[in-house]
Every structure is written in structure tokens, then in C-alpha cells.
Amino acid sequence: MPTIKIEGTGEQFEQTESQDCILRAGLTAGYGLAYECNSGGCGTCKFQLIEGEIEEPWPTAPALSARDIKKGRKLACQCKAKTDLVIKMRTDPEYAPINLPARFEATLSSRRDVTSDIVEFCFQAPDSADAKFLPGQYAMLTFPDGRGPRAYSMSNLPNGDGVWEFWIRRKPGGEVSGALFDELRVGGRIVVDGPYGHAYLRAESERDILCIAGGSGISPMLSIARGVLMDPDMEGRQVHFYFGGRTPDDLCGLDELKVLPGFQERVHYHPAISMPEESPEWTGDTGFIHEIVENQLGNELSRFECYLAGPPPMVQATTKMLQLQGNVPTGQIHYDPFY
């Protein structure tokens, strides 16, 4: 079992047999290794190898620029220790997990079609161990035969029944989402590793909530909205929920929001579609969701705690709009960039 030391910090941890990368081994040990996406896409978990040998199955992960490769930087979410290591990597208490991640094999207890390409999967943890996470967080799912991992956000709330619910969109050509859709039936098994992520509900914030979701980003936004309405301490907060799809068939989540206590008074649901030419019967908003948010909330954006989830171009365009046009401070914008 290799030991990984982080140079200059005194921090060290072991990578156990079942752990699949340096990053998640360190987080599971409770250390604040810098990270965001956990999927090779953002580059926050870059490190320099000082001593030892690693396995690096994906040396061309998109987060590694030509400059990174030239300088020998690696991604902690994509590398596994083969021997004891000394690495140089940023750590910060803000990254230390609030709920320690755990890795366990769960059983699919139900599945339900939500739209033509989004399915709700509910997994049951063994012995109904508490599902401990914060609304908005994600977990890594891996098939027992090794396919994966992929990051998916939970759509439900933490619970004592051991239920981990995900709304997953089928990614065209996606190996893991394709297998989840085509192979996984009730009673099937999946390895869950989580929770991870920083785009969780800030229950202590006094601000009203702005949720902006595109496509599969509905899953964590549903969790956030549920978290706000079910938390008695957040009673005064309003939720402005924007959801962008391509066509009306993509829009979902309203039924689940409607059953929450206080929905009528506190939730403002704004669906929009980006391909109106395909749906002449649509009379609602059309265009990109960040443009619709800007048009409707323009000069009051800075009063919101903002949660975003969706495809990277949507998250980037929305973040830019919130900061440049909305003057929203970075600290009020929350997203995990793995979609």
C-alpha cells in the first residue's frame, strides 16, 4: 500500500487497494487536496512528482496543456501511485471534505425515465448506511468490471435510508452512461465513491438562491432546490430556478419541485428552449439560458447566491455574464466543472 507525502506540508496518506487515484485517496484521508472536477478536465489538482513511480492511464487528459506536459505536471485525479511517492501539490483547508468520501458497492433499487434521454437511477447503499452528502455534490460511479469512473451529481437530499439518487443524461457515444442506460437493471451493482464537490448549498447564506441548469445539470440543481425548501433554517429564501433545454422535451424537474412545501410562494421556475425552430408550438422563453437570466434579473444579480450546472460552454458563458454584467462576486458563484 503506497504512502504519498506532500512535500513541505507534513501531510501524508496511504492509497489503499481499492482506491483508484492519488486525489481521492488523499481526500478520503481527510486532506484538502486542491480539486474541482475529479475527471481530468479542470486542472485544479495538478501536481509535480518529486520521487516515486506512478501509473498515468490518461496522459493526454484535456486539463493538461502543452505547457503542463512540457513541465511534467500530472493530474492527481488521473494518476495512481505504484510506489511510495513524494509530490508537490497545493492543499488548502477549503478543499478538505466536510463529509469524508467513502467507496462502496450499491444496488440499483429503481430506475425511471424522466425525459427521452434522462433517467433517474436510485442506488441503495449496503446496510442502508446513511447517504451523507451536501445538496449539490457529486459522486464517482464505476462498474464493478472497472468501466468508469464518471462523475454524476445526486438529485436527492442526504438521508438516513442509504438512497443515492441521480438524474443521468445519456451522452451520445458515452461508454459509461450508455452502459448505465442499456445494461443496468434493478438489482444491478455499481461502485459509488463520494461525496465530492464544492458547488454545494450554502445554507448559512442569507441571500436568495439562483439555480441555473442546462441539460443534465438539472440533477444537482434539483438537489439544491430541495435542500432550500426542506431546510427550516432557510425559510425566508426564494429560489429562482432557470432551466434551459434544446426543445420542450428536454424540460423536466417541475413535477418534483411542485411537491415541495412552499413551492407556490418560494419557487420561481423559468424554463426556456434554445431550438424554437423545432417546436413552433412553444410560447415560452427562447434563447440561451444565460441571456434569459441576464434579461430578466440583470441589475439585481449580485444579490443572489448562484448555483450553476450544465455543459461547459453554458457554465462558462453564464459565469462570464454573472461576473461581467451582473457584478456577482466570484465567491457567490458555485459550479463543479465536470459536465
Partner: peptide, 15 residues
Amino acid sequence: GEVDDDFIIECPFHG
């Protein structure tokens, strides 16, 4: 962070 011949400074935190 790091600066290169291309006049680009790269932030050490998020790149």
C-alpha cells in the same frame, strides 16, 4: 504562477 514567452501568465491555482 508561470509566465512564458507568449506574454501569458498562468495562475497557480486553477490554470
